[in-house]
């Protein structure tokens, strides 16, 4: 699908936020903002849907909790009960306090790893993956706003350019995709 992508570059995070606010007010849909650091409030401005990473983390944690419980139930109670410190492991419930630290640790382990990997996958930033940002300078001191022609069908290319030019940009670039 062919599309025209406009990249507008700014040199300050306040400028990019103000520009985004202005464009959004005029009805432009801003697809993405690339920035070297997190800009508080930008996601609300350009209408990025709130992340569901938290829900994923909860599910990973729940998985870890269940795996730890099942595992320890099998290892310590069913398969090879041991008498540790005068506390014979014949019942999981009665020895529950002893299993809590491992349950906790494994829950955290699964949640943290699952969350990191999901995050990297979703952002396509696993080690070795090609960079997604349009300009290497966005990892340094430049801020780039990405606007797609296809998502802004109500405006012509010239109108979009004019609107972007009216903001505090330092550079504007255009790219065609096939």
């Amino acid at each position: 699908m062919s599309d025209t992508i406009i990249y507008a570059m700014y040199d300050d995070d306040d400028k990019v936020v103000n520009a985004a606010k202005k464009l959004v007010k005029e009805g432009v849909h801003v697809n993405e903002v690339f920035s070297p650091m997190p800009i508080h409030g930008i996601d609300d401005v350009i209408g990025v849907r709130h992340t569901r990473l938290g829900i994923a983390a909860f599910l990973y944690g729940l998985t870890g909790l269940m795996l730890a419980t099942l595992g320890m139930k099998y290892f310590m109670i069913d398969d090879w009960p041991m008498n540790i410190g005068g506390k014979p492991n014949f019942s999981y419930l009665e020895n529950l306090p002893a299993f809590i630290p491992i349950t906790f640790e494994f829950t955290v382990l699964c949640a943290a790893h699952g969350m990191s990997i999901t995050y990297l996958l979703r952002n396509k930033t696993l080690p070795g993956m090609p960079a997604q940002n349009p300009d290497p300078r966005t990892t340094d001191d430049r801020f780039v706003m990405e606007i797609r022609q296809s998502e802004n069908g109500q405006f012509s290319s010239d109108q979009l350019h004019a609107m972007i030019q009216s903001t505090d940009i330092v550079e504007i670039d255009e790219k065609q995709t096939k």
């Binding site: 410190g85 506390k87 306090p97 002893a98």
Partner: peptide
């Protein structure tokens, strides 16, 4: 809370 309890419970 739990750390305090568990250590005491375990050592008995």
């Amino acid at each position: 809370f739990f750390s305090q309890f568990m250590l005491i419970w375990y050592a008995d």
